[in-house]
């Protein structure tokens, strides 16, 4: 049987991610571009992934789009919500996963898996509290790169308390901490705590059944993850591919569809 190539594109609100899989088993390419739906991000992410494995879009046996930009990807053969994609990706990375916490650019969600299938989920409400966007806004005020937040927060000795959940209010809270010369590391640790507590509320609604795993860009921030582990009193596993989980799931679902059609 020829090698089956599938492409999963996760066109999120803040980043575009693409994964190409061989036979639903091996990752042939993975790319991320830090701009999302509606920008050049989606086409760049796809082009880079294809180039990385020396293929064209026409070589893909099935293309699946997910994320907020999924409807606008005309080359996709199928569209699946990011919730099902994250569930599928998580099951591939951690076959024992029961709870998936995904913190993306503009939403946070908690998924319950049963037998590798998405069984139930909760999502944050409309506001940006507890999402990647919240961290980005705070990083900007603090003049720190988002990617460096974890390192800064780890050095804190006395985290400040950030009590507002609203991004705009929390921003002014951070500014007032800065105005009284609070240590930036302590403010950052406080921000991590605030995001973690907000998301922990969602986790409790679904239940933190082990194995709990975390996906999405924010999973790379160890500060948030550690605070979240403490808040839900359960260890959390993170794959180095956490950020690609949605695209990975999309590529896997594309492969599942191919198998059904054979």
């Amino acid at each position: 049987m020829p090698v089956l190539l599938t492409l999963g594109a996760d066109l999120g609100s803040t980043a575009s991610k693409c994964v190409i899989m061989q036979d639903g088993r091996k990752i042939a390419a993975q790319t991320t571009i830090p701009v999302g739906a509606g920008t050049s991000g989606p086409s760049r992410a796809i082009a880079e992934s294809l180039a990385a494995c020396g293929k064209n879009l026409a070589d893909m046996h099935m293309v699946c789009a997910t994320g907020y930009g999924r409807h606008s990807m005309t080359d996709a053969h199928m569209e699946v919500s990011e919730l099902s994609c994250h569930a599928r990706g998580a099951f591939f990375l951690f076959p024992k996963a029961r709870t998936v916490i995904d913190i993306g650019g503009q939403d946070a969600k908690v998924l319950r898996l049963s037998g590798g299938r998405l069984n139930n989920f909760v999502m944050n409400d409309k506001c940006a509290a507890g999402t990647g966007r919240f961290l980005e806004v705070m990083a900007k005020v603090l003049e720190v790169e988002t990617a460096d937040l974890a390192e800064w927060g780890a050095q804190s000795t006395a985290p400040v308390s950030i009590s507002s959940t609203c991004t705009v209010f929390a921003e002014s809270e951070v500014i007032s901490h800065l105005a009284v010369a609070a240590d930036r590391r302590d403010i950052i640790a406080g921000i991590h705590k605030s995001v973690a507590h907000r998301v922990a509320g969602l986790v409790r609604r679904v239940g933190a059944e082990p194995l709990v795993i975390m996906t999405g860009g924010v999973a790379r921030n160890a500060g948030v993850r550690l605070e979240l582990e403490a808040a839900i009193a359960t260890p959390i596993s993170v794959s180095p591919l956490a950020q690609f989980n949605g695209a990975l799931g999309a590529a896997l679902l594309a492969h599942d569809r191919l198998l059904q059609q054979l």
Binding site: S81, E82, S84, D107, F121, V122, K126
Partner: peptide, 29 residues
């Protein structure tokens, strides 16, 4: 079940895209 944010009459409190994603995921489940 799926919950979405909205308002019966104030159009400022609803996001169409977020609603669609939730419905699609519900349908998948």
């Amino acid at each position: 079940t799926v919950t979405f944010d909205g308002d019966q009459a104030d159009p400022r409190n609803f996001s169409e895209e977020q609603y669609k994603t939730r419905i699609q995921a519900l349908v998948e489940v």
